[in-house]
Amino acid sequence: MSYSLIIVAGFLFAIRGSRQAFSQRPVPSFFWIWREATDLFLTLGLIAALFTVTASFAGCRGFVREYAVLLTGATAYLLTRYQKKSDFFFFFVIALASTPLSVREDFFYNLSWVWVASVGVALFQTGFLGLRYKLLFSSVPEPVKGWPVFCLLAAFVSLALWGLGRYVF
């Protein structure tokens, strides 16, 4: 599930994360993608740290574990609004943060997952938006324009990343 989650996050960020992907002439901004990935890493890392610190108090542990989604979600919402991020960012922060927290409470495990997820999302976007940009200069047949070609590109990029993912997952 972890690998699929990263691919889905990368794809949705690429097609709905910025206005550039919407416009007819998108300019894939390498800097923008990696800055978003850094923000994602820092936000998720902060949530993981807060979760670990709060869960380390014996009195809070049960409460924090039981209401993990609500607490993670509330923290993610505040952090997302503070950074003026999109609603997608908020939902993916919840999804990506809840995945390791549901497995174990080890902070370094969570941090390594967060790092892998952020880099994976950024790599996917880099590959996808780069290929999408190149497609603007090729004659794509009308019947496959739009969703079909987007999904084909996503399939190719996710296959390429699977090679790297094998060493991680």
Partner: peptide, 15 residues
Amino acid sequence: QQPAVLFLLIAVLAS
């Protein structure tokens, strides 16, 4: 198990 296969399937349906 691969998301790539699902993407290909969605590409066919979208087409």
